[in-house]
Design a protein around this nucleic acid. Structure first.
Lengths: 177, 177
DNA sequence: CTGTATCCTTCTCGATACTG
DNA sequence: CAGTATCGAGAAGGATACAG
């Protein structure tokens, strides 16, 4: 598998040649390891499970209760994937009411740290994001209103004329469909 | 889509209070800010775009080329979301071949750092994960094989006996205890 | 309690075609 | 070049029922 996407050094019109000083050039191909693992790790439920799991053991039902909105199915599936990836250890106690404990592996604990920092980022900046969203939406709405005003100022004459005396052109256009 | 949900600090019905010594108790409810932002930020394409974007400006097509497998639609959608969240700045140059530049905002840059550490974690541990997966799959296969062997060893006699004298089986079972 | 199996809805996403 | 709009296939995921 060569890095087939030969990024031709020739730049398309107008882009500056910055010589790509980025040393952070990871494998961007769709089927590469990093992309696959990232998909798993960045999965909604995986993220929450890893973030929740700390030092101690958790029972299945306990996790289910703690993660609001997760279905039994998705918790099972997610835990299995995490177990397969070596991030979570599953321990079955062969007792009469079945009991299963889940806990982070050492590898999982290293990921836990990273993911927690992502969660903390989210907590720290949720205000800014909410504000940005409001600003964006407000701007869009203002834009829409302006456009409508423009249209309302222009169309009425045309629409009125059209209503009274449909032009031959417009009729022809309608028939064309 | 107002997020108007007033989040009362009280827990929703039924959650146990197990003393929770975890100081990292964030709002786990499905509709809370953190969960929503986490979903956005942990999104496959958002992650890749943020990870790719560094100091400089990027053109639309440039991003499209760099992110293998992304469709035009998803790139547009993703960039719009990131713009709305105040993570990416979009600059339209009103020139004859339309030109649009994308770059991280200061807020986006802080997230970039966090996400890069996630990507780096993935790069650092992809070997371990691959190994864990192999081990898991091998174990599962061995388990399957064993089960099949068991079944093959048990069923023929049982089935044969059962076919000759169906009533015997229950008696034998009872005696076995 | 901790799953597994099945069905069925929902929603994501890619392909395609068209616009400024 | 940089979108927007539309549509359909397919996957993700929830609900439910049942098993060990």
């Amino acid at each position: 598998m060569e890095v087939g996407t030969s990024k031709s050094p020739s730049n398309p019109a107008g882009t500056v040649d910055h010589g790509d000083p980025d040393p952070f050039q990871w494998d961007t191909r769709e089927d590469c390891q990093v992309r696959q693992i990232l998909d798993r790790v960045a999965d909604k439920w995986s993220l929450l499970v890893i973030a929740l799991l700390d030092g101690r053991c958790w029972r299945f039902t306990e996790l289910r209760r703690e993660i609001d909105g997760i279905s039994q199915r998705m918790l099972t599936v997610t835990l299995r994937q995490l177990e397969r990836d070596g991030l979570v250890k599953r321990t079955v106690h062969p007792v009469v009411p079945p009991r299963v404990d889940y806990e982070l592996t050492p590898l999982g604990r290293t990921l836990h740290t990273t993911i927690r920092s992502l969660v903390m980022w989210t907590e720290d900046h949720q205000g800014e994001i909410a504000a940005a969203r409001e600003a964006y939406d407000a701007a869009r709405e203002a834009e829409m209103a302006e456009r409508e005003a423009e249209a309302a100022a222009r169309k009425p004459e045309a629409a009125a004329r059209e209503a009274e005396a449909p032009t031959r052109e417009s009729e022809a256009a309608r028939r064309a469909r």
